[in-house]
């Protein structure tokens, strides 16, 4: 009797415990080694680029480009590989028996596992972002002083140098940079939810990974394909159109999370764009998590 009073149908504390446990698991599996590699890439590139190019503004652009490439690689690979085995491993090791034998609703278990993996991604991204911003800022300041010194020394082509300085100023750390990183995080979260969903019915970890990568690929080329279909099948009428709509709805369009090109070129991203991506990303996460739960709820263990 004493215990029954305590039980709640949904307990954020339990989800938190499961998420933290997953975080510990991934950390102790040394998933963070990737971060180390990343820092080496960023720092080394920052040091070496000065030798590649004489164009100062390009140095910052290349740095941003490389860092964001590494970040989205990390996000994509980690979201799929780390999430794919979370549940199958617990099922296989029968650890799940002991967890679900406690008063833990299956939905909390799924959510906890998912959030734990996402926490690793978000934390890693934050660290990478911080590192990028620091290095970018230092390099930007160094280049600015360099250019200012040229200007002060009365170098020829003063207007050109002024243009370079303007460009350098636009290429430093900015909120747009953070927006782009957040978009990468969101893409990883959507991908993680898709992978979790696949893993609830997949027969093996390899199957999950392969299918998840395929879905990612489909989502990535989706806008191109859909445009092509729209162009070629106009005469097919409303049924075909509805089909295309369904495809568009089911497969997340991963292209829309890609803000890297805009950011690298120094464009300022509007906040509304961020919220649009946030809304879309979270919707997909919710839908795929619910779908995963739908299958997992009645699973025989």
């Amino acid at each position: 009797m004493h215990n029954l009073a305590v039980y709640r149908h949904f307990s954020p504390a339990r989800v938190g415990v499961l998420a933290r446990n997953t975080l510990t698991q991934l950390v102790r599996m040394r998933a963070f080694y990737f971060l180390l590699i990343f820092s080496v890439i960023v720092l080394v590139s920052a040091l070496l680029i000065q030798n590649f190019t004489f164009d100062p503004a390009r140095q910052l652009k290349i740095m941003k480009d490389m860092s964001f490439f590494a970040m989205s690689m990390f996000g994509t690979i980690f979201a799929i590989v780390a999430t794919a085995n979370l549940i199958p491993k617990d099922v296989e090791d029968r650890t799940l028996y002991t967890i679900l034998a406690k008063p833990v609703p299956r939905f909390e278990y799924l959510l906890g596992k998912y959030l734990g993996a996402m926490l690793v991604i978000v934390l890693s991204m934050a660290v990478m972002m911080l590192m990028l911003c620091v290095v970018l800022y230092l390099r930007q300041q160094a280049l600015l002083t360099e250019q200012q010194a040229l200007l002060d020394a009365g170098a020829p082509h003063a207007e050109e140098i002024a243009v370079v300085i303007d460009e350098l100023k636009a290429d430093g750390p900015s909120t747009s940079l953070i927006t782009a990183a957040a978009a990468i995080c969101l893409q990883a979260m959507v991908l993680g939810a898709v992978t979790l969903f696949v893993s609830t019915f997949a027969s093996s970890g390899l199957f999950t990974v392969v299918v998840a990568f395929m879905l990612f690929f489909v989502g990535y080329i989706e806008p191109v394909v859909v445009d092509y279909w729209r162009g070629s099948m106009e005469s097919l009428g409303s049924f075909a159109n509805a089909c295309i709509h369904v495809v568009e709805l089911i497969f997340p369009n991963f292209q829309s999370f890609n803000l890297v090109d805009d950011v690298v070129s120094g464009k300022t991203l509007p906040l509304s764009l961020f919220f649009k991506i946030l809304g879309m990303g979270l919707s997909y996460v919710v839908v795929y998590l619910l779908a995963a739960y739908f299958i997992f709820a009645d699973k025989e263990l």
């Binding site: 029954l4 305590v6 149908h9 029968r94 679900l100 034998a101 008063p103």
Partner: peptide, 21 residues
């Protein structure tokens, strides 16, 4: 019902827990 598990402890056969803990 999940609630029924509040008052139970279970030791499965050949139990296996998180190795990293």
């Amino acid at each position: 019902k999940v609630r029924s598990r509040v008052d139970v402890g279970f030791l499965p056969e050949n139990p296996y827990f998180y190795k990293f803990l």
